[in-house]
Each structure stands twice: as C-alpha cells, then as structure tokens.
Design a protein around this nucleic acid. Structure first.
Length: 478
DNA sequence: TGAAATGTTGGGGCG
DNA sequence: ACGCCCCAACATTTC
C-alpha cells in the first residue's frame, strides 16, 4: 500500500480584494490542480496604519468592517481567516513557514510602495523555498495589456478607451467563481480573533451614522440602489444634489466588489447611462496603468515642464479651502461634504481642485494630500490622476487655460442650490438668485436672509476674475 | 469633463 | 424710407 501524500497547502493573502465572490487570486488558489487546502490571511499592516495622521479614520473603520464580514463568510464556509496586526513584511513569510505552505497566492497591487513590499516578500519567501504568485484582479487591464500599435503605453484616454473596448466584452469578463470552491478551504481548529478597532489604535467615526455599509453586502446594497440610476447616469451624474452616481468607489478601493462584474453589468445594460458609467471604470484603469508606467507622476507633474510652476502656496488660503471657508458656496459645500462624510461628488472634486490650483494658486499636491487623508475611496492612481488633470499638469489633462468659474459651475450643476443648502445651512434663507454668489446680496437682503457676509458666511477669499488672470500668467511662465 | 473676450448679425427704437 | 445706434443672440477666437 502506498500512502497518499496530501498536497501541501496554499496560503491566500487578502489585501485590496476583501471578498469571496469572483476573486481571481482566491479562485486560482481554491482550484489549484493539486487540490491543495487553502489557508486565508489578512494583515492589518502596521507599516501602513501606523503612518496614518489621524486615529479617527473612516477608512480603517470601513476596512475593519470588511474584514469582519470576510471572516464570517469564510467561517460559514468551514474555513477561517487568520488575522494579524503587525508588519505584513514580517508576518506573511513567518505564517507561510509555520503553516508549511508550498505557495502564497495574492492579487496584484500596483502602487509603488506595494510593488516594493511584494518584491521583498517574494525574496523572503523564496529564501524559505516558498513560491509567491499574484494575479490581476482589481483592474480590467493591467500593466502592459493595452498598448498602442507602437507598443507604447497610452497617454491619452480616448484611444486607450477604444483599445480597451475592442478587447472587452461579456466573454473577456467571465467571473472567477471563487465562492463556488470554498470547500477547498483548509479547516482550522483555532479561531483567529478580530482585534477591535480600538485595539488597532483607532477610534470610531461617524461611518455608521452615515449608513456607509462595509463589505460585500455593502456593495450589494449599492448595486441594487443603482440599478435604475445607472441608465440615467449620463444625464444625472453631474448634479451633486441628485443620487446620480453609484457611490461604489469605496468598494472598488477595498475590493468588496469585482470590477469584472461591474463592467459586465454595464455591458449587459447597454444603455446610454451604462456606457458612460463604463467609461468611468475605464478612467480608473487608465490612471492605474499611467502610474504603473510613469511612477514619477506620484511625486511630481506628469509633464515635466510644469514642475517649474511657482505656486503662491498661501497657507492661510489653503486652510480656508480645507475648512470650507472660501466664501464660494459650491466650494465650501463640497469641502464640508468630504470633511463630514469622507466622500465628495466627482463634479465637485473637479471644481474644488480647479479652485485650489487656479484660483488660490496652490500646489495641486497639497490638495492631493488632503484628499488622500480624507477620502474613503482614496486610491493613489485615481486621486493623483484626477488632481493632475485639474491642475493641467497631467497626461491628457485639461488645458491650462481651462479654468472653472465656481459661480457658473454652481449655477449649472446645482441650480436651485439644494446641495449647497444641505451642507451650508447658514445659507438656508438666501434666495436662489444669490445662493451661488451671496456676497452680491444687498445689505437688506443679507439681513432678511439672516446671512451677513463676513459674519454668518465669509466674504470670498479671492476675486475669481482677478485670480483667473493671475493663474493664466503663472501657467504661461513655463 | 470651459470661460471670457471678441466678432458678427439682425431686429427694433429713434431721429 | 433711411441711417444710425443699441444690444441681445449667436459664433468665433483666445486664453
């Protein structure tokens, strides 16, 4: 009788893919030809968490909720999620060794620091004789999958999009049905406790009061809510007072929904709205591949000549922008939205970014950093791409002379001031005619609407017409 | 995924 | 009836 040697186990490491459904790397582990049992691990990485500037961070609370749900899902399927609060660089090789796994599987992460971390982990594992494999999961196309005829990365969105659409279709978007193979999860006798948020060193936020639901179930709820709006996305998406967008960005950030599924959904709807929405998913991919091929953009202007821009960088003006005290209602309402909720509507992201760079003449990287600290859906590539677009320093950016007029934008995209009043109740009684530029109210009108400029609401910190001319002059110097 | 300046046209008021 | 001016409305150009 020859004893059957059981196949050595595989360790699957969850990172930005906190779901069991349609998870590419998890699927590859669970369906490995050897029939290997699969251990799962998540690390609350101290190398990342300890560097966060605030101990009240909605992202950490969201992440905590996602991990909690993931743990429950895996347990329900007879598996377990090992959870650590430590340095991933140290933890993953140690755990892999103690579990005697043959390989560690994970999904690719394209951020420069993550690439470096993975390179080091690969080396450590190799020294232990353990394999390390990662898979494309968080984007539709990665790295160099979509190139120009000349074999170069695209730096203009439209041809990039066209090239993507040629490759994409329900066929190329087939799911990796990881959730159907959970029987290959390795049984684990000892449960792994989920540390409390406080134990991770963080305090609770208003995430629950905002009804921002974490995990795969949170994504499901949003998909359901977006099922009708998706068809009207093209005409509703620019109006922050409407529920015209999906609010799924935070789930794309943490991988609590499959990007393939979202793209497949848009394809199958095939409506005007769904097509534009698919475009937005492709913008996300576009910026991922830009940062992958041009990592210098993470630090400075994509177009090198714009590194020479001598921004004024007035700290007082920057503080006014952060604190929603610019005196321009649409800008201040938008900043209150991010400060209070960690979310900002995309139209407003463009408006406040244009305002910071071209009205306040502040380095786009200051704004980028602020968004990085406050956005629940913060993603290095998308955030950097968006800021460089607005500041005109990026690839395929808006031209430098395209400067949003905050009043015109406000009139166009929040005509009745519904969004403004939602976040600036001090302007509640200001008549519609003056809601976009309240400083133009007469003294009587200010009194009547209980909104004295300079007292209840600030006067504009800069004059747009004047600031615009200064911005044009500044950009023309390079 | 603009806005402002400048140019052109044409209707209407007026002498 | 005619020229002149004003100016809204639209188009083009410039930033």
């Amino acid at each position: 009788m020859t004893p059957i040697t059981p196949p050595p186990p595989i360790l699957f490491w969850f990172r930005r893919d906190l779901r069991i459904k349609d998870n590419a790397g998890l699927y590859r582990a669970l369906t490995h030809p050897s029939g290997a049992p699969v251990y799962c691990v998540f690390v609350f990485d101290r190398d990342i968490l300890d560097a966060l500037p605030s101990k009240e961070d909605r992202r950490v609370e969201f992440l905590h909720g996602c991990v909690s749900q993931l743990q429950a899902s895996l347990r329900q399927a007879g598996g377990e999620l090992f959870i650590f609060h430590d340095s991933a660089l140290k933890t993953i090789p140690q755990l892999a060794q103690s579990l005697s796994v043959s390989q560690v599987f994970t999904n690719e992460d394209y951020e420069p620091l993550a690439i470096e971390r993975d390179r080091q982990i690969d080396r450590k594992l190799a020294a232990l004789g353990i394999g390390f494999q990662s898979f494309k999961d968080q984007v539709l196309h990665a790295k160099s999958e979509v190139l120009t005829q000349a074999g170069q990365p695209f730096t203009v969105f439209t041809p990039y999009k066209n090239a993507c659409l040629k490759k994409l279709g329900p066929q190329s978007l087939q799911p990796f049905p990881s959730e159907k193979h959970l029987k290959h999860l390795a049984p684990v006798k000892t449960a792994s406790a989920l540390p409390s948020l406080q134990a991770l060193g963080f305090a609770p936020t208003n995430l629950q009061a905002l009804k921002i639901e974490a995990g795969e179930s949170g994504a499901e709820t949003l998909i359901e809510k977006f099922t009708t709006p998706i068809d009207h996305y093209h005409e509703a998406r620019d109006f922050p007072a409407k529920r015209g967008v999906s609010y799924l960005s935070v789930h794309n950030r943490f991988g609590t929904v499959s990007i393939r599924r979202l793209a497949r959904w848009a394809f199958e709807r095939d409506t005007a709205g769904a097509k534009i929405w698919l475009n937005e998913l492709l913008w996300r991919d576009f910026y991922f591949q830009i940062l992958y091929h041009f990592p210098h953009a993470a630090q400075s202007a994509f177009k090198p000549k714009y590194t020479l821009l001598a921004y004024e960088n007035d700290k007082g003006l920057f503080q006014a922008w952060c604190d929603a005290k610019t005196g321009y209602p649409i800008v201040d309402a938008a900043m209150r939205q991010i400060n209070q909720t960690g979310f900002m509507h995309n139209r407003l992201r463009m408006i406040v970014a244009s305002f910071l760079t071209k009205d306040l003449l502040i380095d786009w990287r200051w704004g980028e950093r602020y968004f990085a600290q406050h956005l629940n859906d913060f993603d290095l590539a998308a955030n950097n791409g968006g800021w460089q677009w607005a500041a005109s320093t990026g690839c395929d950016a808006q031209p430098y002379f395209r400067i949003f007029n905050p009043v015109t934008q406000s009139e166009r995209f929040d005509p009745q001031g519904h969004f403004i009043r939602r976040y600036l109740p001090e302007l509640n009684a200001v008549p519609d005619a003056h809601i976009h530029a309240p400083w133009l109210m007469s003294i009587e009108s200010q009194k009547k609407s209980h909104c004295t400029i300079g007292q209840h609401y600030p006067a504009p910190v800069v004059d747009h017409a004047n600031a615009r001319l200064k911005a044009l002059a500044l950009y023309k110097t390079v």
